[in-house]
Design a protein around this nucleic acid. Structure first.
Length: 270
DNA sequence: ATGACCGGGTGTCCCGGA
């Protein structure tokens, strides 16, 4: 029987300013050639999104920008994502650009930038918990679909103590609070596979290193960028990784590109 | 226990980030 599947690379990368990071992004796209890329923290309006440079690199894109903060995008190598939604349901007055969903290369991809939630306690932490409840509700409608679905992005959640270089130093931070961890665990319990943890098992792997005290060079990081796969997609999981070398370059984002390679049913060539 | 680096805009300081 002829092969009816192909391996696709899904990646998530919090760029911390799309225009400040454009040279980095283009360099990494050329090296890694990911098929599907979720970007967070564009920190740019829709009009300021550098679509021409991204198209020149061989990618189609959709984006949901916002001045100064937030902002998410989805890139597809040799294709344009087919958008299905650009906000998470449940809070119509929420104007923060944190969610984008599309069909990309045969995968339904929810690209997200979950609120940081600091300081906690406080209104920003309450917003984070509400956002996680909205995400869980929406994810429930996606997990059991009969086709590949992924939720990828910057979740701003440290799932377990192994995912932070010093749990005590982060004890009061919003990213590690018990309510936040419980909400993440409840989300996984719907049937999602945390791709990095599934492959790395009990090994340490980080996706973020702050700008202070040479934490990147010293590998004192956090694992907060996640790729969640529904059961159909998790069955095809091949390989995962974090491109830490990107974080070690000059003028880097504080996050590194984080990716999973998955086998998906072939989509018609174009 | 504290503070330290970043990017963007409200712009040479402040806010948000994590």
């Amino acid at each position: 029987m002829a092969a009816r599947t192909q391996v696709r690379t899904l990646a998530t990368f919090n760029v911390n300013g799309i225009n400040a990071r454009l040279p980095h992004l283009l360099e990494w796209l050329g090296e890694a050639q990911p098929d599907i890329v979720a970007l967070q923290e564009l920190k740019a309006t829709d009009a300021a999104f550098p679509i021409a440079a991204i198209e020149d690199a061989g990618y189609g894109a959709i984006w949901h920008g916002q001045a100064s903060w937030n902002g998410v995008a989805l890139l597809a190598r040799g294709a344009t994502p087919i958008e299905s939604r650009r906000e998470l349901p449940g809070e119509p007055k929420d104007t923060q650009a944190r969610y984008l969903e599309a069909a990309v290369h045969g995968v339904v991809v929810g690209a997200l930038y979950l609120p940081n939630g600091n300081p906690q306690p406080g209104p920003k932490f309450d917003y984070k918990l509400r956002w996680m409840a909205r995400l869980a509700r929406h994810a429930r409608s996606l997990v059991d679909l009969p086709h590949p679905v992924a939720l990828i992005g910057d979740f701003n959640v440290i799932p377990d103590d192994i995912d932070v270089y010093d749990p005590k130093a982060w004890k009061r931070d919003a990213l590690i609070q018990p309510e936040v961890r419980a909400a993440y665990a409840d989300l996984l319990a719907q049937g999602w596979t945390d791709a990095l943890r599934a492959v790395f098992e009990d090994e340490v792997i980080y996706t973020f290193w702050d700008y202070f005290r040479q934490h990147a060079e010293r590998d004192r990081g956090l694992r907060i960028d996640h790729l969640l796969l529904n059961p159909v997609l998790a069955e095809g999981l091949v390989e995962v990784g974090v491109d830490r070398d990107v974080r070690l370059r000059e003028k880097a984002s504080d996050h590194a590109p984080t990716w999973a390679r998955v086998r998906v049913p072939k989509t018609p060539s174009r």
